[in-house]
């Protein structure tokens, strides 16, 4: 479980990004900007956060995307073998 601190680090870096992003988008993140604009701004903030987290997680090694891809393939292969876990 060495990945947990890395996941936390990636999350905190993402949090910093969100904080700046919320500052930039502040004019649109209020009800007076209208429902469409504020919803779009929130969506942009959330999507940006997710992308940032993915990038930081890959950079810190918190999530090994190649390994997860390999795991999915391995699972698919194992399912064909009777008696596999």
């Amino acid at each position: 479980m060495k990945r947990l601190p890395l996941l936390l680090l990636a999350s905190l870096l993402m949090g910093a990004g969100l904080w700046f992003g919320a500052g930039l988008l502040a004019p649109w993140l209020t009800p007076s900007a209208g429902l469409l604009a504020s919803a779009a701004a929130l969506l942009a903030l959330v999507t940006g956060g997710m992308l940032l987290f993915a990038v930081f997680a890959a950079l810190t090694g918190a999530i090994d995307f190649r390994r997860y891809g390999g795991m999915v393939l391995a699972r698919a292969a194992r399912r064909k073998t009777p008696g596999g876990p």
Binding site: L8, S38, G49
Partner: peptide
């Protein structure tokens, strides 16, 4: 973890919208 951090950093923005 990222969801928790996000909700701690921008909670009011989310609630307002």
């Amino acid at each position: 973890l990222p969801a928790a951090v996000a909700l701690m950093v921008v909670p009011v923005e989310v609630i307002r919208v």
